[in-house]
Design a protein around this nucleic acid. Structure first.
Length: 543
RNA sequence: GCGCCCGUAGCUCAGCGGAUCAGAGUAUUGGCCUCCGAAGCCAAGGGUCGUGGGUUCGAAUCCCGCCGGGCGCGCCA
C-alpha cells in the first residue's frame, strides 16, 4: 500500500472524478525515462479532455487544483506539474522513494510477491517430449519458459502444478523400437532394411548396445528404449533445474477409457457424424476451418482425441487456469483442442486452455544453421547447451526474449563470449554486494535500524525506485506469461546498482550513512535474488 | 492459395490496450583501477521503427493493402 505509484493513482482518481463526475477513466501512471519529467507521470488529463471536449491543459489545471489537498496529505510529493500537452508529473520526496528499502528487508524472499492468483489452482504443462530421443533446444526453451511462468504464478499466490505429458505408446514409439532393433542387427541408417523414418541419432546405437536381450525381442526393446530415454530426459531436466509434479502418460487415457468417453460425450451431444467410413467432429461449430476426423476408418483415433481427453482431465482435476507451453508448430492444435473441449458441453470456457507458443529455436554454428529435428540424427540438445555455457546462462538466455520472437542461438558466440552473457552482469551485481557484506559484516539489526533519510544521492534514489518497481514487473509478467520482462528488469536493477557503486563509496567512515547505504544495497541484492529465482537462475555470492 | 506469428541501430532484441517511446545489450571509438570485485563505470557515433495508405489533435504501437521471413494447413503425432 505504501507504493507511491498506487497513492498517486488514487489521488488522481479522486481528482478526475471531482473534475469530471461520472466519467469513467482508467488512470494510467508511467515512469518517465526522462528525469526532467519527474518520477511519476499520468496522461489522465488528456483522456478526460477527450470526453469533456475541453483543452487538455485546462483539464490538467483543474485536476491540479482538485488534488492539492489530498496530495499534500499523502506526503509523497510537494506538487503536481503540468507539462507538454497536459501531462501531470510529480517529483517524489526522497523519503517516499526510499521507504521500499525497509519493506524489502522485512519481506525478504517474499518481496515482490502478489495476490493476483491467490488461492487459485493452476497447471502449467511444458516440455512434454516424447521418449524418442534426448531433449533438444526447443525443449530447453519450453523448460525455461514453463518453469518461469509457473514460478511467476506461484509468486502471485497460485498453487501451481508443473506437468509433463508424453506419448508412451504411439507410432513414434514403434519407430523408436524398430530403429533400435535395426541397430541391434548391425544396420545403419540408409542401409537396406533400415526402417522408414527411423531415428538415426547415435543414441539409438547406444541403446542397442546396452540392451541386454535379443534383437528379436521387440517388446523388450521398446520397454528398454523408452525407459532408457525417460531416464536420460529426467537427468537432463534435473541438470536444467526443472522439476515436475506430475508425469501424465498418454497411454493411460486409453487404458482408463477416457478417449472412448470423449467420443461418447461428443456423440451424445450430437457433435459427430459419419462420412467416408470415419467419424467426424463438428469443430466448425467452434471456429475451425473445417471439421476434423476423430476416428479413422481403420477404427483408431486421430491424435487430437486423446489430446482433448487429456485436457478434459485437467478441467476435472480442478484446474481452472491451464497454460500449455508449446512450439508454434503446434498452433493448429489450439483451435482443435478448444473446439473439442467445447463440444463436451461441460461448461469449459472458450479460451481454455491458455497457450504460450514459442517460435522454434534456430541454432547457428560455424555460420550455418543446425537443423533441429527429432527425426534428423543431429541436433543440439539441452545437455549440449548446458555443457557449453552452463545452466544459469542457458536458462537466462532462453527466457530473456519474448516467446513468439524468433530465436537465434549462436553456439559459437555462446562458446566464445560466455562472459558477455547478460546473466553474468546480473549475477555479478549480486556477488559484488555479497562481497561488501563479507567485509562489512552481516548485521540485520543494524540494517533494520538504518536511517534511510540519509539516502539522498540521485543514484541512491534511482536504485531505490527501481527496486520498488519489482512488484509491478512480477505481477505484469505473471499476468502476461512473459518472464522475459523479469530478465530485462533485472538487468536494469543491476545497471542501477553498478552505476551507483562506481559513483559513490558504500563503506564510508560515517557509521549511520554506511548503514543506510548497506541497507539499500541489501535491498537491491534481495530483489536480484528474488528475480533470478523466478527465472530458475542462481544468485551466487562469489563468482 | 488459406490461417497464425514476425519485420525497430551493423548484430541479438525490448517497447506495441496511442502522447514523456526512438530504447537496451553487443560491436566500434575515447576515457576510468595506490580506494568496497574493471565479469564494472563514464562518454561518443549509429535507426524515415519493412513499405504504402487509413483512423486520430497525436501512430513503432490501432485498421487495410503490399513486400520479405517463419510455422502450420493429413483418416501423421
Amino acid at each position: 500500500m505504501a507504493d507511491p505509484k498506487d497513492i498517486f493513482r488514487r489521488v488522481l482518481e479522486e481528482g478526475a472524478s471531482a473534475v469530471a463526475p461520472g466519467t469513467a477513466v482508467q488512470v494510467q501512471i508511467e515512469r518517465p525515462k526522462n528525469a526532467d519529467h519527474g518520477d511519476l507521470s499520468s496522461n489522465v488529463a488528456m483522456q478526460l479532455a477527450k470526453a469533456l471536449r475541453r483543452n487538455p491543459r485546462e483539464v490538467a489545471a483543474a485536476i491540479v487544483e482538485a488534488t492539492r489537498g489530498p496530495l499534500a496529505s499523502s506526503g509523497i510529493a510537494e506538487r503536481i506539474e503540468i507539462a507538454g500537452a497536459g501531462f501531470l508529473n510529480i517529483r517524489l520526496k526522497a523519503a517516499s522513494k526510499v521507504r521500499v528499502v525497509r519493506e524489502v528487508l522485512e519481506q525478504g524472499a517474499r518481496f515482490g510477491a502478489g495476490e493476483r492468483e491467490a488461492g487459485k489452482s493452476v497447471q502449467v504443462e511444458f516440455v512434454s517430449a516424447n521418449p524418442t530421443g534426448p531433449l533438444h533446444v526447443g525443449h530447453g526453451r519450453q523448460g525455461a519458459l514453463g518453469d518461469a511462468i509457473a514460478a511467476l504464478l506461484e509468486f502471485q499466490g497460485a498453487k501451481v502444478t508443473r506437468e509433463f505429458y508424453y506419448n508412451d505408446a504411439g507410432a513414434q514409439i514403434d519407430k523408436l523400437a524398430w530403429s533400435v532393433q535395426a541397430r541391434k542387427r548391425g544396420l545403419k541408417p540408409g542401409d537396406a532394411g533400415w526402417p522408414e523414418e527411423g531415428y538415426a541419432g547415435e543414441y539409438i546405437e547406444d541403446i542397442a548396445r546396452e540392451f541386454p536381450g535379443k534383437a528379436e525381442d521387440l517388446d523388450g526393446i521398446r520397454r528398454f528404449a523408452v525407459d532408457y530415454l525417460r531416464k536420460e530426459q529426467d537427468a537432463d531436466l534435473k541438470a536444467f533445474g526443472v522439476k515436475f509434479d506430475v508425469y501424465y502418460l498418454e497411454s493411460s487415457l486409453y487404458t482408463e477409457g477416457k478417449v472412448e468417453a470423449v467420443i461418447e460425450t461428443w456423440t451424445k451431444n450430437g457433435k459427430c457424424y459419419e462420412k467416408d467410413g470415419a467419424l467426424w467432429l463438428r469443430t466448425t461449430d467452434y471456429g475451425d476451418d473445417k471439421d476434423r476426423v476423430a476416428r479413422k476408418s481403420d477404427g483408431s483415433y486421430t491424435y487430437f482425441v486423446p489430446d482433448v481427453a487429456y485436457h478434459r482431465t485437467k478441467w476435472e482435476r480442478g484446474f481452472r487456469k491451464v497454460i500449455d507451453v508449446q512450439g508454434t508448430d503446434h498452433h493448429s492444435t489450439v483451435v482443435r483442442v478448444r473446439a473439442g473441449l467445447q463440444a463436451l458441453g461441460a461448461g469449459i470456457p472458450q479460451g481454455y486452455p491458455d497457450y504460450v507458443l514459442h517460435s522454434l529455436v534456430k541454432v547457428m554454428r560455424g555460420g550455418e544453421e543446425v537443423k533441429i529435428s527429432k527425426r534428423a540424427g543431429s541436433y543440439v540438445t539441452v545437455r549440449d547447451l548446458i555443457d557449453w555455457v552452463g545452466r544459469d546462462a542457458v536458462r537466462f538466455f532462453l527466457v530473456s526474449r519474448k516467446a513468439d520472437s524468433d530465436f537465434v542461438f549462436d553456439v559459437d558466440l555462446a562458446l566464445q563470449k560466455t562472459d558477455e552473457n547478460p546473466v553474468y552482469y546480473v549475477q555479478y551485481a549480486h556477488a559484488r554486494i555479497c562481497s561488501m557484506f563479507a567485509s562489512a559484516g552481516q548485521d540485520g539489526e543494524r540494517l533494520a535500524r538504518a536511517n534511510l533519510d540519509l539516502l539522498a544521492h540521485p543514484k541512491e534514489l534511482a536504485l531505490a525506485q527501481r527496486v520498488s518497481e519489482f512488484r509491478e514487473v512480477a505481477a505484469a509478467a505473471a499476468q502476461e506469461f512473459a518472464p522475459h520482462a523479469v530478465a530485462f528488469y533485472l538487468r536494469e536493477v543491476a545497471a542501477d546498482f553498478h552505476s551507483y557503486y562506481n559513483a559513490e563509496r558504500i563503506l564510508v567512515e560515517d557509521e549511520a550513512l554506511r548503514a543506510a547505504r548497506l541497507a539499500l544495497c541489501a535491498a537491491a541484492r534481495q530483489t536480484i535474488a528474488n528475480g533470478l529465482s523466478l527465472l530458475g537462475v542462481s544468485a551466487p555470492e562469489k563468482m
